[in-house]
């Protein structure tokens, strides 16, 4: 079947405990833009019970339709039920694209249903471009550790499946469409197909230090940091009323938790103030930062980080940190 037989872009609406995951709304807004360019319809797809108040938020993002699936098997997430669901729905409705938030569960089922459909799946694009000539979506993302940008397409097959990190796109609703078609489907997943059983769930003890996505000030250490210097950056973050974060190599060194890793395969941040110490400026790190004021400290004057900063200092990171701490303590 040719790809022109496939129409409409879908966004999976992830609902946990009656609440929509913010990434679903971000993806609706971004896919709205793509649909306006391609002339396709935007459809939100959800399974199980979704409160009306949550659907109202989705409608504000400009969806043309909602595909709401009921049936047994969606009371809680399972790989099998969601893989089966999207496989069946895609076979029946033939969307051109399916966007899934790169949450733990989104990343769990999206590649699997793409494999079952024998189609392509991309992950962690930081930019989406609709190419009107090929009618393909260009998934743009940093590659090879952020040294280069790669354009990834799925030129022959449909649907084009993509998982996208929360925080990559903005939730900027463009308003409700005049008509929002609602399609109700019943598609139960037979219990015997589900091969995992949830025995227990424990919510993380909220460790505020590990939640950097909404912090107004971020002190970020890069691979230039010495193990023994870490406490001073922690102190600096505390004095600034902010939080400590890091780049991938630092998390790889197990110096800090990977929950503090900023960037493409970590957390997207939008602080008012970002201070990067010993950060080289790999693209997969800087794409994760949307800062009001961006400050960089590095001994290498040619480090790419200086191309992203508002202000930079070429100097030893520890010396600058010490001096800043001293100034803050003096309250000058």
């Amino acid at each position: 079947m040719g790809k022109s037989e496939y129409r409409d872009m879908w966004v999976y609406l992830e609902v946990n405990g009656g609440k929509l995951h913010p990434v679903s709304l971000e993806l609706c807004c971004e896919a709205r833009r793509l649909c306006d360019e391609s002339g396709e319809r935007l459809i939100g797809v959800a399974a199980g019970a979704v409160p009306e108040s949550e659907l109202a938020q989705v409608k504000e993002c400009g969806v043309d339709g909602l595909l709401l699936v009921s049936g047994s098997g969606y009371e809680r997430y399972s790989t099998e039920a969601y893989t089966r669901l999207f496989t069946e729905l895609c076979r029946k409705y033939r969307p051109s694209a399916v966007f899934v938030g790169a949450t733990a569960n989104g990343r769990d089922f999206a590649p699997r249903f793409a494999a079952r459909l024998e189609t392509g799946c991309t992950s962690d694009a930081t930019e989406l471009i609709y190419n009107p000539e090929s009618r393909d979506i260009e998934f743009v993302e940093p590659a090879a550790g952020g040294k280069i940008m790669a354009v990834i397409t799925i030129p022959e097959l449909r649907p084009q499946v993509g998982t996208i990190r929360p925080g990559t796109f903005k939730h900027a609703p463009t308003g409700r469409r005049e008509v929002v078609e609602v399609i109700n489907e019943t598609l139960p997943c037979p219990a015997e197909e589900i091969r995992t059983r949830l025995l227990d769930y424990k919510a993380d003890e909220r460790d505020a230090e590990l939640d950097i996505s909404d912090s107004e000030t971020i002190v970020c250490v890069g691979n230039g940091v010495k193990d023994e210097s870490l406490p001073k950056y922690r102190e600096l973050a505390a004095l600034l009323g902010g939080k400590l974060a890091c780049t991938r190599p630092v998390a790889d060194r197990e110096l800090l938790s990977n929950k503090l890793q900023v960037g493409q395969s970590g957390v997207m941040i939008k602080p008012k103030l970002y201070l990067g110490f010993g950060v080289s400026g790999a693209v997969n790190h800087v794409t994760g930062i949307d800062a009001g004021t961006f400050i960089a400290v590095n001994t290498d004057p040619d480090a790419p980080i200086f191309n992203y900063c508002d202000y930079g200092i070429v100097a030893d990171m520890d010396a600058v940190c010490d001096e800043l701490i001293a100034l803050l303590k003096r309250g000058a």
Partner: peptide, 29 residues
């Protein structure tokens, strides 16, 4: 099914303002 039709170097924005006041103390101040 996925292809990489092109790669390109990341577009580097203009360099930010480098603060150099002659000494670390002065620059940090």
């Amino acid at each position: 099914p996925t292809k990489v039709p092109r790669m390109f170097p990341p577009e580097l924005p203009e360099r930010g303002e480098i603060i150099d006041e002659g000494s670390i103390e002065a620059s940090v101040a």
